[in-house]
């Protein structure tokens, strides 16, 4: 995806969007991924809320990294993350109560989203604020894309709409299971299969090019 001469910041950003995509590559944060992706708008909202919390908390964790003793770092991270989640919680209530009801407890559960704590521990705690926030933004965008990929498929198949706009005629019979919990697993499994296939194809191509790999 990226080569050595691309700017450092772009590389930092694309790590989360593609190479280490939290949903499709690292398979993190599955709880909101499966639960809220019944429609595209829910997926976008959840993704943006997580993106905001990721960027803000990684920025603050990074700024505090030199004065944070390692013994209390987890407590510091959790307090910082919980703070921004609370702020997002109020913000969503102020924007739309219907959206707030649709996302339910999963807004508050962003606190324990492993992507955010993982980023704080693995990246923000060791890097200056700017790269940390760019990396976090990449992860957030990657997470949003992942949620959207599920949300779009599930909304089209399960409700026959996209972002609330009806796509098919009145004769369309919604595939209701897709907006129920099992549908989340089906669609996630299909996407993971697709990305695994892409990865394998890429490996085979590079093996052919360098002529070191052997076909099995």
């Amino acid at each position: 995806m990226t080569t050595a001469d691309t700017p450092q910041t772009w590389d930092e950003f694309m790590e989360g969007v593609w190479r280490q995509n939290p949903v499709f590559v690292m398979v993190l944060g599955m709880c909101p991924t499966l639960a809220v992706t019944v429609s595209a708008i829910n997926a976008i909202s959840m993704g943006l809320a997580t993106l905001f919390v990721l960027v803000c908390s990684c920025g603050l964790v990074s700024m505090m990294r030199k004065v944070t003793p390692k013994e209390v770092r987890i407590a510091v991270y959790i307090v910082i993350i919980a703070t921004f989640v609370t702020a997002v919680d109020y913000a969503i209530q102020a924007i739309s109560l219907a959206l707030y009801d649709a996302l339910g407890a999963f807004i508050q559960l962003i606190v324990v989203n492993c992507i955010i704590l993982g980023r704080a521990e693995a990246h923000a705690a060791k890097n200056p604020p700017m790269p940390a926030m760019i990396n976090a933004a990449g992860m957030g965008v990657g997470f949003t894309i992942g949620l959207l990929a599920l949300g779009v498929v599930r909304e089209i198949l399960g409700a026959g709409t996209l972002l609330g706009v009806t796509l098919f005629g009145a004769g369309f019979q919604p595939w209701v299971i897709m907006v129920l919990p099992p549908g989340g697993f089906f669609v996630l499994g299909a996407w993971l299969l697709f990305f695994a296939w892409l990865e394998r194809r890429k490996l085979r191509r590079s093996a052919q090019l360098t002529e070191v790999g052997q076909h099995v």
Partner: peptide, 21 residues
């Protein structure tokens, strides 16, 4: 140092939460 950091984080976070509310 531990108390100072936790106190500082709590103060910053307290301000952010009250501000958001």
């Amino acid at each position: 140092a531990m108390i100072r950091t936790l106190g500082l984080v709590s103060a910053i976070c307290g301000l952010i939460i009250v501000g958001a509310y």
